[in-house]
Design a protein around this nucleic acid. Structure first.
Lengths: 150, 150
DNA sequence: CTCCTTTTGTTGCAAACGCAATAAAATTAT
DNA sequence: ATAATTTTATTGCGTTTGCAACAAAAGGAG
C-alpha cells in the first residue's frame, strides 16, 4: 500500500526546507522565494492569481508579498483601469535575485529526477499535472467552506 | 519547461490545507494528523524516526508530539533498555481518530489519482519514491549545515 | 440605476514553524 | 576506561501561518 500523497508531502517539505536554508543568507526569509519567482515570471500578476497558482492562504500571500515589497524585491502598482487589483512587478534587486533562484531551482529539479530516464521524467511531470488538476477543485471547495463526503 | 517540484509543492499544500480544515472539528490542530498517523502505524516509534520519515524540523515534531500527548491522542513511554529514547504509542482516543484519518487519507489518494490507469498510478508512486530517495541525502546534508554546489 | 454577489485585498489573533543553542544519554574511538 | 562524537529530545525567540472577520471595488441581476 503505497501512499502517493505522503511521498509528495515529504518531497515538498525537503525542498522547501533546503530552499529556505539556502536563500536565507541572500536576504530572503521563509518562503519568500515562492512568491518572488511567480512575480518575476509573470510581471503584472495580481496577488490572487499567485494564491491560485501556489495554493496558499490569501493572508499568507498578502503578508509575504508585503514583506517582499518592504525588502525592495518587488513593487505594487495601481492598475490604471482598475482600482482594486494591484499589479506586481519585480525591482532590479528582485530580478537579480531571481537569476539566482533559477539556478537553485534548476539544480533541485535535476537532483530530484536523477536516475530517471527522459521518458520517465516526462511521465512524472504529466502525471503530477494531472494530480494537481484533480486536487484543485477540492481545494477551492474546502477552502470556501464546502465539504467532501467520504 | 515543466517544473516537477512546483507541482509537488502545490499538490502538497492543497492536501495539507484540506486535511487541516477537515480535521479541525475533530480536535486536531494544524498538522497534528501527520504525526498521529505515523505513531499509529508504527507503535513504539521514536520522535527522531518520525522526523526522518516526515522531513520536518526536530523542534516542530517535538512540540507537535508534545501537544498530541497533552490532548490525549498518544503516550510517551520510557524504554526499559534505553533512557534516552521515548517510545510513542497511540491511546484509545488516538486509535479511534486514526480510523477516521485513514478514511480521509484513502479518499484523498483516490481523488488525487482519479483518471489515471492502475499502471500509471503504480508508475507515479514508483517515480515519487525514487525522487524522494534522491532528495533525502541532500535534505540531511543541508539541514546539518552542509552546502550544495550549483 | 440600485441591490446583491463576487473578487481582491488586508488585519487581529492565536498557533505552528524552524534555526540556534542546550542537555543528556548512547555510541564510537583512542 | 576515558574522551570525543553522535543521537535523541527540548526550549528560547522571532517569524510565518491561516482561520475569521472585515473592507472596498468590480461585476451582474432585477
Amino acid at each position: 500500500m503505497g501512499n502517493i500523497l505522503r511521498e509528495v508531502g515529504a518531497i515538498a517539505r525537503c525542498f522547501e526546507s533546503i530552499s529556505n536554508i539556502e536563500f536565507k543568507p541572500y536576504g530572503l526569509s521563509k518562503n519568500q522565494y515562492i512568491y518572488l519567482v511567480r512575480i518575476c515570471e509573470n510581471p503584472g500578476i495580481i496577488q490572487e492569481e499567485i494564491v491560485y497558482m501556489v495554493k496558499v492562504d490569501r493572508s499568507t500571500a498578502s503578508r509575504a508579498i508585503e514583506k517582499l515589497e518592504r525588502d525592495g524585491f518587488i513593487q505594487k502598482e495601481q492598475e490604471s483601469d482598475n482600482r482594486k487589483n494591484k499589479a506586481l512587478y519585480p525591482t532590479e534587486k528582485g530580478k537579480e535575485m531571481y537569476a539566482f533562484l533559477r539556478k537553485e531551482d534548476d539544480y533541485s529539479n535535476a537532483a530530484a529526477v536523477k536516475g530517471l530516464s527522459a521518458e520517465e521524467e516526462e511521465t512524472l511531470l504529466r502525471l503530477l499535472q494531472k494530480v494537481r488538476a484533480n486536487v484543485e477543485p477540492d481545494w477551492e471547495k474546502v477552502k470556501n467552506g464546502g465539504t467532501r463526503e467520504y
